[in-house]
Design a protein around this nucleic acid. Structure first.
Lengths: 143, 143
DNA sequence: CATTAAGTTCAATTAAAAATGAACTGAGGG
DNA sequence: CCCTCAGTTCATTTTTAATTGAACTTAATG
């Protein structure tokens, strides 16, 4: 699944291990169990944390940090939308807004062509608005 | 956007060119305009077609096939969900169903651990069902 | 404070994905 | 029928992304 959404496989492996393990695991446990480099695990955990797919657990009397999976689908999806999709939509929307009809070679076009382009330019701008309202709804639908 | 969703940049370029051009374009137009190889354009167009992001247009008296963009966000999203996400969810769901408690080293676990695992295993199965009902709703929301 | 264990960073390497391009197929047109 | 044009296929190359690993921080411990 992570790969289908354009994220590294290692993320899926780490999350999967945490999911399949009833106790929280420490950094080193993951490195050992997945035979993965510390670097990958470090970056993987960081991303999973920012996305809200895992949560840190402190165990008394242990210096290490432990992790357990967030098992609510709603939160996983919300995190993905927030951290991955939304930023791109922002960028995309900003660019769409900056586009002016003059950015196209309008002089060379028929009236009909100009109309079509103007239409599409408008549509582009509504897309972003629509995304902005729909994405939060999706998160809620899964709650 | 296409890259954020784990698809090649070239797809975005082709769709973008079609979107920014009021007339339908032929295969060769795209190759020329994007300075892209025939191979890439061929594969790109094929994917965009299966996803329903473009539609073929036949112009009378011209042997070539022309394309124009599908500009309805709803259809674009629906196509992505159908062609990219759903297949993965199917696979994932099938695997989840095939998992048995015995696939985990249950003997080595406390009762609490066993309970947690059984819970998660159940949850995994509900995820797929939920996805199956929510994805179509998403498509409709955008309509 | 020195030491050691825990985790991070990032340049270099490796692996994966995408783009290329040449050889191929197949449909019209002459 | 043969030739040309339109597009496809796929092995190779190129590009991009992910992984590694060694050097570096940071913080707890004796």
């Amino acid at each position: 699944m992570t790969q289908a959404l354009g994220m590294p496989r290692s993320l899926g492996e780490i999350y999967g291990l945490l999911y399949a393990t009833p106790q929280p695991l420490a950094f080193q446990d993951i490195v050992a169990r997945l035979e993965m480099s510390k670097g990958s695990v470090s970056q993987g955990l960081r991303f999973l944390r920012t996305v809200g797919a895992i949560k840190p657990v402190v165990l008394a009397g242990d210096r290490r940090e432990f992790f357990e999976p967030v098992v609510e689908l709603r939160q996983l999806v919300a995190g993905f939308l927030r951290e991955r999709l939304n930023p791109q939509i922002e960028i995309w929307g900003a660019r769409a807004k900056a586009l002016k009809p003059a950015d196209f070679a309008l002089e060379t076009l028929s009236d009909k062509g100009r109309g079509t382009l103007a239409n599409r330019l408008e549509k582009l701008k509504t897309w972003q608005k629509r995304a902005g309202t729909v994405l939060p709804m999706v998160s809620k639908l899964l709650g």
